[in-house]
Simulated assay, not measured.
Amino acid sequence: MLNVNRPQIYKKPMDRSIFSQIIHIRSYESDLYHEATLTQIANYLQEAAGRHVIEMDLGISVADLIAKGLGWVLTRMQIQVFEMPQAYDTVQLDTFPTGFDKYYLYRDFLLKQAHTDSVCLQATSVWAVIDFAKRGIVPIPDFIKQMPLTAQPLMPSPKGKIPKIGQITHSRTFQVRWFDLDQNQHANNVQFLNWAIEALPETWLRANQAKRVDIAFRNEALYGETIHSQVAIDPEQITSLHRLLKDNQEEIAQVQIQWAARPMPK
């Protein structure tokens, strides 16, 4: 059963542990139903996380880490949608770190209508630090652990594995383009979500709305590589399982999406 309990609005402390920004949803960031696209929402979340580490002024921004031969990488994200904002809406996005362990930083997000406080969605994410020379994840450095933690998690941290894909019902092939790349020299994580969703048939996308997304990032995708997007749809549970593979069958991401029937237009 899909959990539709909305989080309580918290009172934000006056410190740097929580970052807030006002976003005006533009028409070109929305779909044919005038709703902000899921991939655009993921872009907002990543951008807010990046801006937050800059404003903390602790030497942990993307540029700061690159200068040390390191980089932030998103390893998992879960998004729970209550009501997707529409084109020309004004929304407030809050983000804050919620904890650390040896290899991972945990960060949550809350998106709400700026004028009414009506919650649009919440999300939780897991981040790691990559060593560019080793092309692998390293323990969270001590200077990053200076990041202040004052907010309570909105959602449980992602645990367990995404179920393995079953009988493939649809697939598409993509190529990593120049403008898919980010500052870490590989395809941006949001593009992975785009590849997963684009493998779904038009009839499914017209009939359903994504309500809960769980995406696990396994490996990077580099410029020019071919990406195979496979999906298995379960129409009874209204879910889809996705897998992204390279030509050599290396898995780069898994995705599970819970859908709900799209309301009929009034």
Rank of each mutant, 00 (worst) to 15 (best):
N3H: 10
V4S: 13
P7F: 08
I9H: 08
Y10T: 12
Y10Q: 13
K12G: 01
K12C: 07
M14K: 13
M14T: 11
I18P: 01
I18N: 05
I18K: 03
S20T: 12
H24M: 08
I25Y: 00
R26I: 07
S27R: 11
E29C: 09
S30F: 02
S30V: 08
S30C: 15
S30G: 03
H34I: 09
E35F: 12
E35N: 15
A36V: 15
T37P: 02
T37E: 05
T39M: 10
I41K: 00
E47I: 06
A48Y: 01
A48L: 05
H52N: 05
V53Y: 00
I54N: 04
G59C: 07
S61I: 07
V62S: 06
V62C: 04
V62G: 02
I66C: 06
I66N: 05
L70I: 06
G71Y: 04
V73S: 06
T75Y: 04
T75K: 09
M77K: 03
Q78E: 13
Q78R: 12
M84Y: 04
P85F: 05
Q86D: 05
Q86W: 06
Q86A: 12
A87G: 14
A87D: 06
Y88K: 13
P97G: 09
F100Q: 09
Y103Q: 13
Y106S: 02
R107H: 13
D108F: 04
L110Y: 03
L111E: 04
K112A: 14
K112L: 12
H115K: 15
V119Y: 06
L121M: 15
V126S: 06
A128S: 10
I130S: 04
I137G: 00
I137A: 01
V138T: 11
I140N: 02
P141S: 11
F143A: 11
T150W: 09
Q152M: 13
P153M: 09
P153E: 10
P156E: 14
P156T: 12
P156Q: 11
K161W: 06
I162P: 02
K164M: 12
I165Y: 04
G166A: 11
Q167K: 14
I168W: 08
T169Y: 02
T169R: 03
S171D: 11
S171I: 06
L181G: 01
D182C: 07
V190I: 14
L193R: 01
L193K: 00
W195H: 09
W195Y: 14
A196S: 13
I197Q: 03
A199P: 03
W204Q: 13
R206N: 14
N208K: 10
N208D: 05
A210C: 05
K211E: 07
R212S: 05
R212L: 07
I215S: 00
I215Q: 00
F217G: 01
F217N: 02
R218V: 10
N219D: 14
T226V: 13
I233M: 08
Q237R: 15
Q237Y: 09
L241T: 03
L244D: 01
K246L: 15
N248L: 05
E250M: 12
I252G: 00
I252M: 05
I252R: 00
A253F: 02
V255A: 06
Q256L: 15
Q256I: 10
W259A: 01
A261W: 06
P263Q: 08
P265A: 09
K266F: 08
